[in-house]
Amino acid sequence: MKRKNNAFFRWFYGEKDPYLGKVEMRPQPKYENKPSDLREAFRDSMMRDRIYDAEDNATLKIFQKLYRIAAVLFCLILIGILLVNVSWLPRYGQASNPVNNEVSARYIESGLQETGAVNIVTGMILDYRAFDTFGESNVLFIATVTVLILMRLDKEKKAPAKKGVPVYTKPADELTVAQAHDRIYEPKNDVILQMVAGFLVPIIIIFGIYVILNGHLSPGGGFSGGAVIGAGLILYLNAFGFEKTERFFTEKTYKWVCFFALTFYCLAKSYSFFTGANHLESGIPLGTPGAILSSGLILPLNICVGLVVACTMYTFYALFRKGGF
């Protein structure tokens, strides 16, 4: 089949990236590996002949074709099976479906009395099914840990020396390079951006706080509010640069805020699980439904989740941008 060779099709088939070299802030060095001696160069060329030269490698080509056909077939079969599955499911939007049983009925009918939350979903995820939600914040926590391992550029820190144990040495000084790049290519003094950010950031952050504090009363909660605040912080960082944000947000801030929020979350929920399982009264007042200070532990937990999420979002951005704060 002869295919059209215009820019769109070449992009579509992944041959050419129209943005390559145009949107990157810094020029990308070409990948090169320097063969250190003649033998390695020879082995390299042999290797290239065997596997790297995809154009002339018939087996590789056949394998790739087969893989694509198998993958497409697999996906089509999967969609087919699942569509048949859907056609046998209970009808959409009916009140008599098996989903609407005594479980959801109790959440709706006595959720307000038992959890104190007007927003039934919040009451459900932070009280009835709080263990899931605690697991979920741990997912976010462990994701941050993983991203920190991958992206954080640390200053050299010596391990305590032990006899006969080789100590890890860093291959190259990536930290200074990344910082230098960030200094050179960081957009500075963009007046329009700074003016707009000056207007927007306070509003965004206040809105985020509102969403968090009203998590038990209206749509929203810790996660959505925290994401809003995180977005506000990222906008501030983009407009004013790391120098300004370092004044109030460093890695220490992140570490301790996350630690205290998660510790409070963990202890509060352990208390409530423990008393619940041992059939003890928890003794936490639920307050008047509808007031800001009501619904027992839900409000403090929402604040904790909000703090964790806001810090995490900002941290992701800072790490992606220069590998630190």
Binding site: G93, A95, G111, V118, N119, I120, P219, P289
Partner: peptide, 9 residues
């Protein structure tokens, strides 16, 4: 469920 409100009392 058709015709019902979001779960906020």
């Amino acid at each position: 469920i058709a015709g019902r409100a979001a779960p906020i009392v």
